[in-house]
Computed example of a mutant assay.
Amino acid sequence: MSRILTITLNPAVDLATSIDRVVAGPKLYCKAPRVDPGGGGVNAARAIRKLGGEVSALVAVGGAMGEQLLQLLVVEDVLAVAVHVRGETRQSFAVTDETTGEQFRFSVPGETMGSADAAQLLSAIAQAAPRDGYVVLSGGVTPGLADDFPQQVLEAIAPRTDRLVVDTSKAALAHLLAAPGKPVHVLRLDQREAEQAVGHELASVAESLAFAQDLIAHGVAQIVVGGRGAEGSVLATRDQRVFCRAPYVEVQSKIGAGDAFTGALSLALSRSEALDQALRWGVAAASAAVGSEGTALFGHGEVEALLPQCEAQDV
């Protein structure tokens, strides 16, 4: 089994708590928080470890909060490759209203990086990339880094592997879609991101698959995976179109669900599983994360229990 490297450019220490009712004005006394390491690649790495995979998590960290994040990764049995950058690692905070079940999520931006930070990160990524393995760039690109940073990562890892999985957002995603250069191995988008990119609603599975194959035709990626919320996810290559329906779970928290999907999908691909089976693992992991409290992702055996309910079919 190939080792996997995940990359988190903008990690966070995640706090999740709850209160009887969220109201404006008075001081609100929350329950004791759950504290977890967070950020796209971190959560993907946590999911891989929970599923029994081997993974290293490269994280850009700074300050006391960065040290806390590294300690939290030790607790999760995730091997960290720390790249120390300027500024303090950020925090994210989520509060669940126990009366309504609504979850309020607050995320502060990471501190701006400079050219020295970018060069240091790319050098560390090039050294840590597993030979013929998978590299997973998941989460936002930190302010100050170039919009084409995913393409720079692909170039940096080229001497060792071309299997780059990208799950990013905002300007970096827009740049990748508009000016792809060499295609990444796998690109994942959620439904909102796909609809923003195409400029209209993707009302059906067929429309999501058509959009995915259009990206492939334009050289963005070899494989495109698209989320469709609670309905499930699609996967497309030039010659294959697959839809996997998600099982019903009672929603507890959506934090990290997309990252869990990316981690489980990448693990299955690293084990040379068929694309439809890899999609099933991703959908099962995302569903398990949605059904788990706060920032916990999922517990032992929960993904495996949901997997039989995740039906993949060619479309």
Rank of each mutant, 00 (worst) to 15 (best):
residue 2 S to P: 10
residue 4 I to P: 02
residue 19 I to Q: 00
residue 21 R to Q: 09
residue 31 K to H: 12
residue 31 K to S: 10
residue 34 R to F: 06
residue 36 D to N: 12
residue 47 A to Y: 03
residue 48 I to W: 05
residue 51 L to T: 07
residue 56 S to D: 15
residue 56 S to Q: 15
residue 63 G to P: 11
residue 65 M to W: 11
residue 67 E to G: 15
residue 67 E to K: 15
residue 70 L to A: 14
residue 71 Q to K: 15
residue 75 V to D: 13
residue 77 D to Y: 03
residue 85 V to S: 00
residue 87 G to E: 03
residue 94 A to F: 12
residue 106 F to K: 09
residue 120 Q to W: 02
residue 122 L to C: 06
residue 128 A to M: 07
residue 134 Y to C: 03
residue 135 V to Y: 02
residue 144 G to A: 01
residue 146 A to F: 01
residue 149 F to E: 01
residue 160 R to A: 12
residue 160 R to P: 06
residue 161 T to L: 08
residue 166 V to H: 05
residue 167 D to H: 04
residue 173 L to T: 06
residue 175 H to S: 11
residue 176 L to E: 05
residue 176 L to P: 02
residue 178 A to L: 10
residue 180 P to K: 11
residue 180 P to A: 13
residue 181 G to T: 08
residue 182 K to Y: 13
residue 183 P to I: 00
residue 186 V to G: 05
residue 196 Q to E: 15
residue 206 A to F: 10
residue 207 E to D: 12
residue 213 Q to L: 08
residue 218 H to P: 03
residue 218 H to G: 09
residue 224 V to P: 03
residue 224 V to K: 03
residue 228 R to S: 08
residue 233 S to W: 11
residue 246 A to P: 07
residue 254 K to R: 14
residue 256 G to F: 01
residue 267 L to R: 01
residue 269 L to W: 03
residue 269 L to Y: 06
residue 271 R to L: 06
residue 292 S to G: 00
residue 298 F to Y: 10
residue 298 F to E: 02
residue 300 H to W: 12
residue 301 G to M: 05
residue 303 V to Y: 08
residue 304 E to K: 09
residue 305 A to F: 01
residue 309 Q to K: 12
residue 310 C to E: 07
residue 313 Q to R: 15
residue 313 Q to L: 14
